[in-house]
Design a protein around this nucleic acid. Structure first.
Lengths: 210, 210
DNA sequence: CGAGTTTCGATACCTAAGGTAGCGCAACTC
DNA sequence: GAGTTGCGCTACCTTAGGTATCGAAACTCG
């Protein structure tokens, strides 16, 4: 991230507090819930001023999206890096290697368990459900969430599975929707037993032997 | 609803505007989105004062929940009426008739198509996603939504399918979560093709021949 | 008809939260 | 040292949920 070759521009450099802000965001969301995790509280938890937050992120939603990107990191598929995806540049649906049923199933299973694990981390699930909720009635945030958060993973999945976009989107709806609905209705992440059931159901549908 | 036998209590009777308020709520949500569908706007659309709304519903969330109950109505299973459920009185898991695999599948399929159809109605899906979103960081609203909205349908499903509570809750997470995630991410209800896929996936898991 | 009761509409108000503007100061490059 | 950029701070605007109050309307009962 630190530009080694480019010369630094004049003026006071930005304090390296992004990671502190992300950590403060998750901590605050975990402590007081998404709605009460105001930008002012998050800034206070990070030890900076509220205006500094708004100098770096245009809206609260953008902050949460970046925080989630940082918390999730790249998908464990070895394909695309979510941080550097170009967005609408998709085109290479041909993934070279055709996977067998068992391999596809294993890939899907590891992906589900990966997402379930992240959502179960303190603050992450709440933040995820929170932005998603806000996005429902905020088209700009919805666009941001779809392009910056969902698309990279969707693209990586498409390439890894060799499935068309529509089908991968349905897969994401199924897995993420189920996990978020459970979290939203109960306030608790899904139990291991039910994650097992989700894995079984999705595997049977997306990686059936025939 | 109109008390025919009981004597009317003294004082000015309440104006029969509940249905008008529900209609105004869905219309307003559909027109301007959930977040901008303020109580003031809804009241104006219904032709009444904001204070009158708050005299009947303690919070905006309670209004939306009642509006959704009115829009969904009883489940098409012929079991429990969602309006008169007692809540934590459950106990009779024995449903008398044991359904075969095909019957269970048909029941699940009709249920999924029923929910998908309701969520597709203008305003209903947005209102549903909206309260759900608010409920994520509002425990009181979450409790209200779970007890008054989800529980009756859950109970009816338990009795109709003869399945344990945990499994029915997982079924609901799957179906409702998927539909809401699609609506939230795209702003549009799920296409018929994808609803077909959802039906196939859930049927295969919950009503497999063996 | 009149007394008591309850609801309605209207206005004003409180609070929380997202977001912006401007100021003085700090930190850096040239 | 001059210019430039970031920071903290304070003050402020707007929207929205929700409450308090008051006079007028609509009803029951005697």
């Amino acid at each position: 991230m630190t530009p080694t070759t480019a010369r630094r521009s004049p003026g006071r450099p930005r304090a390296g507090v992004n990671q502190a802000v992300y950590a403060a965001t998750l901590r605050t969301v975990h402590d007081v819930g998404y709605a009460r995790a105001t930008v002012e509280r998050i800034a206070a938890a990070a030890g900076i001023a509220k205006t500094t937050v708004y100098r770096r992120w245009p809206t609260k939603g953008a902050l949460i999206v970046d925080c989630l990107l940082d918390a999730f990191g790249p998908a464990p598929l070895g394909a695309t890096d979510p941080g550097t995806a170009t967005g609408t540049a998709g085109g290479n649906t041909e993934s070279g290697t055709d996977l067998g049923s068992a391999e596809r199933g294993a890939l899907i299973e590891s992906g589900i368990r990966w997402i379930a694990g992240r959502i179960g981390q303190p603050g992450v699930g709440d933040a995820f459900a929170g932005v998603f909720s806000d996005a429902v009635s905020d088209p700009a945030l919805r666009e941001l969430l779809a392009s910056r958060f969902q698309d990279p993973y969707r693209q990586a999945l498409q390439e890894a599975l060799g499935e068309p976009e529509q089908r991968v989107l349905f897969l994401i709806d199924t897995v993420v929707g189920t996990l978020l609905h459970r979290l939203g209705m109960t306030g608790e992440p899904m139990s291991d037993t039910d994650v097992d059931a989700l894995v079984a159901m999705v595997r049977r549908f997306f990686a059936a032997p025939e």
